[in-house]
């Protein structure tokens, strides 16, 4: 049964990479069920991330957000800050797609704080970029400018010319 769980996960990932997002989601749901059966929180967390990603490409941003929230909850339980940061980043982007810029900014800010804590300059730069965009969308150009400047500063520091 445990091996079956891993096989479902691998099948889900393969279908995902082939661009078959409906099939990917079906396999990852099977993987999730087996992870729950075993109380395997790490596998459950992976399944939620994979399900969130698949639903982005299915155009179901609302469903993706719910899966990413489960990912975030488990990442906190498992005390995995890198995954927590990634989940916040995914949620920020998903709420941007849902045109809920305030919530997007909330999650991008949470991502920024964790990236700073982890001294992840690349993550910090991305968070600032996203926050700049979110504040433009909210009609707050002064705040957007603050984050755009910070984004520029970090990009120069890490040598990202793009």
């Amino acid at each position: 049964r445990a091996a079956q769980g891993r096989a479902y996960g691998n099948l889900g990932n393969t279908q995902y990479l082939l661009g078959n997002f409906t099939e990917a989601a079906t396999f990852h749901k099977e993987r999730l069920a087996i992870a729950k059966e075993f109380g395997d929180k790490a596998a459950e967390r992976r399944a939620y991330s994979n399900l969130g990603n698949a639903h982005i490409f299915l155009g179901r941003f609302d469903v993706a957000a719910e899966y990413y929230k489960k990912t975030l909850q488990l990442a906190r339980q498992l005390r995995d800050q890198a995954v927590e940061a990634q989940a916040c980043y995914s949620l920020g982007n998903t709420y941007t797609l849902l045109q809920d810029y305030e919530r997007a900014a909330e999650y991008h800010l949470r991502h920024l704080l964790i990236a700073q804590e982890l001294a992840d300059r690349v993550g910090e730069g991305r968070a600032c970029w996203s926050l700049g965009n979110a504040y433009v969308s909210m009609g707050s150009p002064a705040q957007a400018l603050t984050f755009a400047k910070k984004h520029l500063q970090i990009s120069q520091e890490i040598g990202d010319r793009n």
């Binding site: 990479l17 994979n50 155009g59 982007n93 797609l97």
Partner: peptide, 26 residues
């Protein structure tokens, strides 16, 4: 599903490009 209405947001577009190759391995 909802349409991809915000593809003009570069940061989201970049994230989705990366996401296409992102899988959590067993």
């Amino acid at each position: 599903g909802q349409r991809l209405h915000l593809m003009q947001v570069d940061s989201v577009q970049r994230w989705m490009e990366d996401l296409k190759l992102m899988t959590e391995c067993e």
